[in-house]
Amino acid sequence: MSFLKDLSNDKVFLFDSGQGTFLEGEGVNITETKLWGSTPFIKPDFFKSSNISVDKKAIIKMLNEFQICDLISIPTYQLCYDLFLEVLKLEKSIESETNYKELLSNITNFTREYSPDKQLVGSIGCFGASIAEEFSGDYPENIDYYEFFRPQLECFNHSENVDIIGFETIPNFEELKSILNWGEDKLSKNFYLSLSCKDDCELELRDGTPLKDIAKYIKNLYEENKINKNLVLLGVNCCSFYSSLPNVQELNKYLNDNKLRCKFIVYPNSGEIFDKVKKTWSEPKDILHSSKANWVKTVKLYAESNCKVIGGCCRTTPDDLKIIKLGINQLQAK
């Protein structure tokens, strides 16, 4: 695909924005189950052409709005096998895993139908997303990460409609190390890893691991020729807008030298603040913390730190994408 070929030049690609934010704005109850934005797909007859439900129309509208992008996520971030079983009250079995993979395939094909010319990202949420700890990295011990991810990963590995696999919002160093040590037999398709970092420019993963240490670990894997050759991007998502740039700059500082040329992906939150009493969102008091006021100049700074894919996460919308696109176009015009 041209996207992968172009990663080595100066081109910058546009990723999509917050899917949950969009769907909520269209009247979809994404908190109806633990599957979040994947919930509409488990409802009866969703994939039938005769279905014209509010949820289905909202997802189609979202995908249409995202056609401005180069890459679009398949709405499967929260749809891990464990939560699929929990929500549908099923037991682990060959039959339930087969049904799960069929659902993933149907969602993937549905996304492709409305995004025929885009690069589709097989979205895989971190282990923490299944236990509501993606913003702490506070995990139990002795997790078999591969077995946790395996059903979803196997489906995406073998799907012709998945162009790249995205492991998103990783907050825990042990989880990250596990994925980094999988070979091409487990991860046979191009993939990226995106980290969940602290919000106040601490330059740390959510579990407290310094990004410098993470970069050192990755660099050692490269030097020892132990890195999975399908890893094409490293990145940061679902952190505050203000901290996203310093986090990327920190990784870039240690992962770009004469031997190593890492490429990055970044898609931060909007910077909006949630009032827990009023249950409302508002712009931050410091304008520097707001994505809306700073996208264009920050896009330039992202690109200077080797970011090849830029988009938005929570509370960002297609309106943000239009501004990011403007910033990207200004870069390409030079």
Rank of each mutant, 00 (worst) to 15 (best):
E175Q: 11
C238V: 10
C314P: 14
G18R: 05
E184G: 00
A293Q: 13
K300L: 05
V87P: 06
N181K: 07
I72C: 09
E26P: 03
D117H: 13
F127V: 00
L85E: 05
F84I: 03
K253G: 00
K226H: 02
K322N: 09
L88I: 01
K118P: 06
D55L: 03
E134W: 04
L301W: 01
E113P: 04
K189P: 09
K259R: 09
A215W: 04
Y81G: 03
F173K: 03
T108R: 00
V309C: 09
A58M: 07
E250M: 09
G128I: 08
C155R: 01
A129L: 01
G271Q: 01
L176E: 01
V296F: 05
K89E: 15
L255V: 11
L88G: 00
T169E: 11
S291C: 14
A215T: 01
K325S: 14
D138I: 14
A132M: 11
K89G: 07
L233W: 01
D207I: 02
K57G: 08
F47H: 11
Y217N: 02
P40A: 01
L221S: 04
H158C: 09
D117I: 07
V54W: 00
E102N: 15
S8Q: 14
D138A: 12
N252W: 09
G137C: 10
S136M: 07
S49Y: 08
E65C: 11
K263C: 14
V309L: 15
L251R: 04
E272F: 07
K57E: 15
D286Y: 07
L88F: 02
N106W: 00
V12D: 10
I287N: 12
N237H: 04
D286A: 10
P75S: 12
D144Q: 07
S8E: 15
K198T: 13
L23T: 07
G137N: 09
S136I: 05
S2P: 15
L331S: 03
T298R: 01
V277Y: 14
E160N: 15
Y302V: 10
Q119C: 14
Y242A: 10
Y77M: 12
S243D: 04
S8F: 06
S53F: 08
F47V: 14
L104T: 04
L203C: 13
L103P: 04
Q19S: 14
L260N: 15
D200C: 01
L176M: 10
N294T: 15
G125I: 08
L326M: 11
L71T: 08
I107Y: 05
E272H: 10
V296L: 02
K279T: 06
D207A: 03
E141S: 12
E133Y: 04
I323A: 00
D117W: 05
L255K: 05
C197N: 08
K308P: 08
M62E: 11
W182R: 00
K43A: 08
E102C: 09
I143T: 07
L255E: 13
Y139G: 04
E304K: 12
D117P: 01
S159A: 14
S244F: 06
K285Q: 13
S123Y: 05
I165K: 10
I165Q: 12
R150M: 12
V54I: 14
G311N: 06
D55G: 03
E97L: 08
K92G: 03
C307I: 14
L35V: 02
V162M: 09
L104W: 05
S93G: 08
C262D: 00
L331G: 05
I143E: 12
D207H: 04
P318M: 07
E168K: 03
W182N: 08
